[in-house]
Design a protein around this nucleic acid. Structure first.
Lengths: 231, 231
DNA sequence: TAGATTGTTAATCGATTAACAATC
DNA sequence: TAGATTGTTAATCGATTAACAATC
């Protein structure tokens, strides 16, 4: 696997392939073509073949890809060949939902603990996962070699939480707080700002009709002016 | 605003600018340069100026952008000049968290109702927002002219839920279910698959050290071979 | 006027699409 | 062998970056 400077867009598609392969294997499908993967994922067959080819030749010409084999390969590429231990910082509504969601729906991830500074939450459990005091996070991270953290604290508390955990070994952060986080160079941040997702979607729902109206008018205007010229 | 075929990447950045402007206005800052916006957002100043220029000339050369004026313009562009009514389908952990989160943290969105088919949930409230039976969704959507829905049901139930709501006027969907949704042409879907976000992040946390190791070795190998050639 | 910063055009970079030879 | 589908190279498309004239 000569993985070198693979683009973010490619990496974001790999887990989609993984999820589809999981489903196929469960349905006992053992071969799949890029064309069929395209139908399941919404990405083009060419793109899928190209994505996979960055990492090696995993298919069989004329036949397609073996689902089990390809899944193992993709797992290795992403780094999911063993379950990844994570922590969730913030045990409010969102943190609780994320803890539950990942421990039940994400087969490749282990949520080892949640953290909060609210003493009313500390000591409780979320589906069996302990809520610890944020101050215990450094020790917990070090002792358990945690590299990945989910940030689900309010915007105002996010930077402080991130400083704390990056100082003790966290290298990758999934950030749900609506702020730009400053992190050391070797730490990766993915922002998953839910309000932004919803707001940018609204552009397409509300603005579209009006945009279409405008466009139609413009086209009409153009046509008219042309007609005018011809006449 | 001659908004025509603006790319998705541009549209995704607009809500970020909006959020920053909100914060600036709250701090009573009334002018901001693209350079300063860059520091707050992480995008380059050139990109910010270009993004805004697609829609008009909102700044003052030599001075920057007036925060209040720019905010109004961006709100209009996205379609957030009036609060947008939305519904959340699925009142489980994630649906509940999303309902709460958007009604408390998203100043431009109104969550009007949540829906579930679990009779134990129907009739209850999430921070004052009613949970209705999914079967009531069509009537509710029509009567209230709802255009935007958040899907937070299990993967297996998602397509059915989406069919139901698109049939009655929903034009934009924020989908948290890990499936590819089939929708009519004029309906927009944004996928916010939380497991995928986390998994693609892991590529950077776990694979990186090994990748760097490999890279170092390769560079070393190259150097050696060069030295060899020279000698 | 001098300094600063926008708005816009041109150049570069990167990602996607198309095409097809390789090969099962 | 014939048909199918991969893996790879070339062409296109789109987005970002750089540069700078316009102008407050």
């Amino acid at each position: 696997m000569p993985a070198r400077n693979i683009s973010k867009s490619v990496i974001k598609r790999l887990p989609v392939y993984l999820r589809i392969l999981d489903q196929l294997i469960q349905r006992r499908v053992d071969m799949i073509s890029s064309k069929e993967l395209s139908a399941e994922s919404g990405f083009t067959a060419e793109q899928i073949r190209k994505d996979l080819a960055y990492f090696g030749a995993f298919g069989t010409r004329g036949a397609g890809y073996n689902t089990v084999y390809l899944r193992e390969k993709i797992k290795k590429i992403i780094g999911l060949d063993k379950k990844i231990d994570t922590i969730v910082i913030g045990a409010g509504n969102l943190g609780t939902a994320l803890t539950r969601y990942n421990s039940s729906k994400n087969p490749y991830v282990n949520v080892t603990a949640a953290f909060d500074h609210d003493s009313r939450l500390v000591g409780k459990r979320i589906d069996g996962i302990e809520i610890l005091d944020v101050n215990e996070a450094p020790q917990f991270i070090t002792e358990n070699g945690i590299k990945v953290a989910v940030i689900a604290v309010p915007a105002a508390a996010a930077q402080e939480a991130v400083d704390l955990v990056t100082k003790h070994g966290i290298k990758a952060i999934l950030n749900f707080a609506p702020v730009k986080l400053n992190v050391p160079e070797d730490v990766h941040v993915h922002n998953a700002d839910l309000t932004i997702e919803l707001q940018s979607l609204i552009y397409y729902s509300s603005a579209e009709e009006e945009r279409n109206e405008r466009l139609k008018k413009e086209i009409k205007a153009k046509k008219n002016s042309k007609t005018f010229l011809i006449e």
